[in-house]
């Protein structure tokens, strides 16, 4: 297990290295540089000497490899540069927005698990009944409906028509916990239902497949009660494909969360990233991309480790 862990970690670091080069290059590949862009706005800077002076001040005249090294080094000590737009340190911008995005993510996980898993299990045990058909078709609706459309419908229903939840905006938990929960319910639900449909279908099919295996019959033949058969013999192998799907889904949910943050005017990472792209705010774009990449890598690492835990055959290889 230790070797497996070390190997996975090494892979993750290697990929992170490659991704960081990619992110860094994308920013450099854009025509012009930040100083030139600033000079377009400010006539005082439109002088070759001043511009060269500024370039050396920001380290832009140094070799690209060195610039990359400095960026990576600074990133790991929390110096993420300053935003061109607001002049605020990027790291502080992130810290300010972190709770919003984390809350959104936690709520999303809550809804998707709460809806997806029990329905999948029920559906598997009641297979080919009316209930199963109802759950399965609801799941398809959940998967097919676009996040934007669902958000609009929910806002119309529960903010305009019934006025239960605020239509948009964010109240920090520390300020007013009740209002904080109220304003997060709809955005997290929209994100959650989309994934819940997918989880439900995977839980159902993988549980059904495992329950048809010979070793389940062996477990029953040993005299285990049905509950023990499921918890001890079926649960772990049935989780393997589900974990895969969750891992992929958590990567995709980032784009969904960008949309949801925009729709419900939540000041999270997604909002910041979109605003930064619109304003060509390079330090913020770079930092956002790297954080997203880091998150996806961590999810993948977690999935790999879970595989190792769930399936002993993976551990050995």
């Amino acid at each position: 297990m230790k070797r497996y862990l070390a190997k996975r970690l090494l892979y993750a670091l290697l990929i992170l290295f490659l991704v960081s080069i990619l992110i860094f290059s994308i920013a450099r590949l854009l025509p012009g540089d930040p100083i030139q862009a600033a000079a377009m706005m400010n006539m005082d800077l439109a002088n070759e000497e001043i511009m060269d002076d500024l370039r050396s001040q920001f380290g832009l005249d140094r070799p690209v490899v060195l610039q990359y090294g400095v960026w990576v080094k600074d990133f790991f000590v929390g110096e993420w540069g300053t935003s061109f737009g607001s002049g605020e340190p990027v790291f502080e911008m992130f810290l300010r927005r972190l709770p919003v995005t984390l809350e959104l993510f936690a709520g999303y996980v809550f809804w998707s698990f709460l809806i997806g898993f029990p329905l999948g299990v029920i559906s598997a045990f009641k297979r080919n009944t009316v209930l199963d058909a109802a759950i399965t078709s609801t799941a398809i609706v959940g998967i097919s409906v676009p996040v934007i459309w669902e958000a609009i419908v929910l806002i119309y229903l529960f903010s305009v028509h019934f006025q239960i939840f605020p239509p948009s905006g964010y109240v920090p938990f520390s300020e007013n916990s009740m209002e904080n929960v109220l304003c997060m319910i709809m955005p997290t639900f929209v994100l959650g239902t989309h994934s819940a449909g997918m989880y439900m279908r995977y839980v159902r099919s993988s549980l059904l497949e495992v329950l048809g295996q010979d070793y389940i019959r062996t477990a029953r033949a040993k005299g285990l009660k049905e509950m023990a058969v499921i918890m001890r013999h079926a649960a772990k192998p049935a989780m393997i494909p589900v974990v895969t799907v969750i891992g992929i889904d958590w990567g995709y949910v980032i784009s969904g969360s960008f949309l949801v943050e925009y729709m419900f005017a939540l000041p999270g990472f997604g909002r910041m990233g979109i605003d930064a792209i619109a304003a060509r705010d390079y330090p913020v774009i770079q930092a956002t991309l790297l954080i997203v990449a880091l998150f996806i890598l961590m999810v993948n690492l977690a999935v790999d480790l879970l595989y190792g835990y769930l399936d002993p055959r993976v551990r050995v290889k």
Binding site: Q213, D214, Y215, R217, T218, A221, H233, K236, P237, P312
Partner: peptide
């Protein structure tokens, strides 16, 4: 009961 196919009749994760 002792089953045929000991490959599939034993649980691979236990």
């Amino acid at each position: 009961m002792i089953f045929q196919e000991p490959m599939t009749s034993l649980n691979p994760v236990l």
